[in-house]
């Protein structure tokens, strides 16, 4: 495990923890897209099916379980917590997730390493993760205003993706025969999805003001 990969994982973990703490502390999930959170739950469930039949390391297993548990905890807060669920912007969070799920699944059936149930579902999770943030970005565009914590959450998720890109370059040059085209292409697409958001985030940070997205 190299430093970029570890930093990427930690940034990913931190982004989720920050979101969860924000929801717990403020008893509010205003500005958070439940659709995106549910897509991440689908991503984790379909990708980490290998928990049942493959062991890589204790680190790997623990992180997978944390990602699964935190994803479902956030969803539970947004759907079931009697105070938090009332702050959910249901009318604004209207992204049609099937427009993401169906194409990703079809693509996973067409482009994969092996035509088996677990392999297709794993590939599907890779494709879906690349676009899972879109409902959140659309919700931000609609509400036109990004509070600091929601902004930080997306910024950290973007940083995690960027660190993974560096990790892949590092591994390509240090590990013989290391290549994974499906992961690389989707990861690059995913990082690009964040670039537009990064531009406005950095601009707001430089001007030292609350972040506002263009109409």
């Amino acid at each position: 495990m190299n430093i970029f990969r570890l930093a990427g994982d930690m940034t990913h973990l931190l982004s989720i923890i920050v979101l969860l703490l924000k929801i717990q502390a403020t008893k509010s999930c205003a500005g958070v897209s439940l659709k995106t959170q549910e897509l991440y739950a689908v991503v984790f469930v379909t990708r980490y099916l290998d928990l049942f039949y493959s062991f890589i390391s204790l680190y790997n297993t623990v992180m997978k379980i944390i990602f699964l548990l935190t994803a479902f905890t956030i969803i539970w807060y947004m759907r079931k917590h009697k105070v938090v669920c009332q702050t959910y912007d249901k009318e604004q969070d209207t992204f049609r997730v099937l427009f993401l799920i169906v194409p990703c699944f079809v693509l996973a059936l067409l482009v994969n390493h092996e035509m088996s149930v677990t392999e297709v579902l794993w590939t599907f999770s890779i494709y879906l993760e690349a676009v899972a943030i879109l409902p959140q970005l659309v919700l931000l565009q609609r509400t036109k205003n990004v509070d600091n914590l929601t902004g930080n959450y997306i910024f950290m998720l973007g940083s995690y993706r960027a660190l993974y890109l560096v990790n892949w370059v590092y591994r390509y040059f240090t590990e013989l025969g290391y290549r994974q085209w499906i992961v690389w292409v989707s990861g690059t697409v995913q990082t690009c999805v964040y670039l537009d958001f990064f531009y406005y985030y950095v601009q707001a940070w430089r001007n030292n003001e609350r972040m506002k997205l263009p109409g």
Binding site: R5, D9, I56, S57, M63, H113, Y164, Y178, Q180, V183
Partner: peptide, 10 residues
Amino acid sequence: LIGGRKKDEL
């Protein structure tokens, strides 16, 4: 497996 290697990334 990714092309014969274990999926060690998260």
